[in-house]
């Protein structure tokens, strides 16, 4: 079932890559120089690393029927904290630790609003989305804080054969995959997302689960923020991680995880994040102004929606059944 769900995103990615090959025959070429691997594919992965990181956290949040709009702002705050600390003479490691601790606190705050106060996730995280950039600017006093620190630069721009940013993202992907398999987090997240009432009656502590995933996504956003600011050795409170929440949500949705919660696919999210980044690169290679990428993203969203809609034909005759039930029936039929 999950393989079938990943078929469309996989095909889309292959098509995009082939398109690139047509325009730039050397697209798949990789070369090793000074022990660093270079090539278009590496670039795609490196530029997509922050989005992938956040999308991984977002996948779990969305699986619990939630959403986190504040990740972009949290990423900006992480960069701002780290850079101001280093600019004030602090060490890079303490700077990063400080940033991540603050992000965890912000995650606790979102989780508190959603799971304890019971505010709809989209609204609860809107608060931090709005105020967060203000906080980031407060930290940087409205300036772009530039720093010069070799250790810090490694996070976003360093190489260990592959760019370190890629390695971090893949490590987190592996970590999440392992954590959700080796602990019961994955199963409990899905059960809370699929049927909250049944989960309550089975004694699942939904509150803890939901709180955990919001803290996790905030940490992911924090690491992504560090990557973004490290890559340019500066903290830009206004533009760091701008709209990354939308790209992350998009990656999750393209990867086949429904915004209605429930079953999720980390592989799908990986595919989704790579598709988005490849799309951006493709637009570059075929010589369209990069800003126009947005039009292609819109087209992708619309196509994905059409494919995920409870079949286009029944939708057009206004089927009264909720999409979820129909999907179930369909899956049964496929088996």
């Amino acid at each position: 079932m999950s393989n079938r769900r990943l078929l469309w995103p996989a095909l889309a990615l292959v098509a995009l890559l082939l398109l690139n090959l047509v325009f730039t025959p050397s697209f798949f070429a990789l070369r090793l120089q000074d022990g660093h691997l270079f090539g278009s594919l590496v670039d795609i992965l490196r530029n997509g690393a922050p989005t992938l990181l956040i999308a991984l956290g977002m996948t779990l949040v969305i699986a619990t029927r939630g959403i986190d709009l504040s990740v972009g702002a949290v990423a900006a705050i992480a960069g701002a904290v780290a850079c101001t600390h280093i600019a004030d003479g602090g060490g890079p490691v303490t700077a990063m630790a400080l940033a991540l601790v603050l992000c965890a606190v912000l995650g606790l705050w979102n989780g508190f609003l959603v799971s304890v106060v019971g505010i709809q996730p989209i609204i609860a995280t809107l608060v931090l989305m709005t105020a967060g950039r203000g906080i980031a600017m407060l930290l940087t006093e409205g300036q772009i804080v530039t720093i010069d620190d070799d250790v810090y630069r490694q996070v976003g721009a360093g190489f260990l054969v592959l760019p370190i940013a890629i390695l971090i993202s893949l490590a987190v992907l592996g970590g999440v995959a392992l954590a959700t398999r080796r602990t019961a987090l994955g199963m409990l997240v899905e059960s809370v997302g699929v049927n909250p009432e049944a989960s309550r009656l089975a004694g699942v502590r939904a509150r803890t689960i939901i709180w955990t995933v919001y803290v996790f996504v905030a940490l992911c956003a924090g690491v992504a923020g560090l990557m973004i600011s490290s890559n340019v050795s500066a903290a830009d409170a206004n533009n760091a991680g701008l709209w990354i929440e939308l790209d992350a949500i998009l990656a999750v949705v393209i990867g086949g995880t429904s915004l209605a919660g429930g079953r999720y696919s980390l592989t799908g999210t990986l595919l989704g994040a790579v598709i988005i980044q490849t799309l951006t690169t493709t637009v570059y290679t075929i010589g369209v102004p990069p800003e126009v990428t947005l039009v292609f993203k819109a087209v992708v969203v619309i196509i994905v929606c059409l494919l995920q809609a409870p079949r286009v034909a029944p939708a057009l005759r206004r089927a009264p059944a909720p999409p979820k039930a129909e999907q179930e029936v369909e899956e049964v039929a496929v088996r």
Partner: peptide, 29 residues
């Protein structure tokens, strides 16, 4: 349907759900 099954999950997951919930998410059965 509404208060019992977690319909998208497997038979195994549904069976051990309550046992797992009692142990918390960190200690997988």
């Amino acid at each position: 349907k509404a208060e019992g099954l977690v319909s998208d999950l497997t038979v195994r997951d549904n069976m051990i759900l309550a046992m797992q919930a009692a142990r918390g998410w960190a200690r997988q059965v």
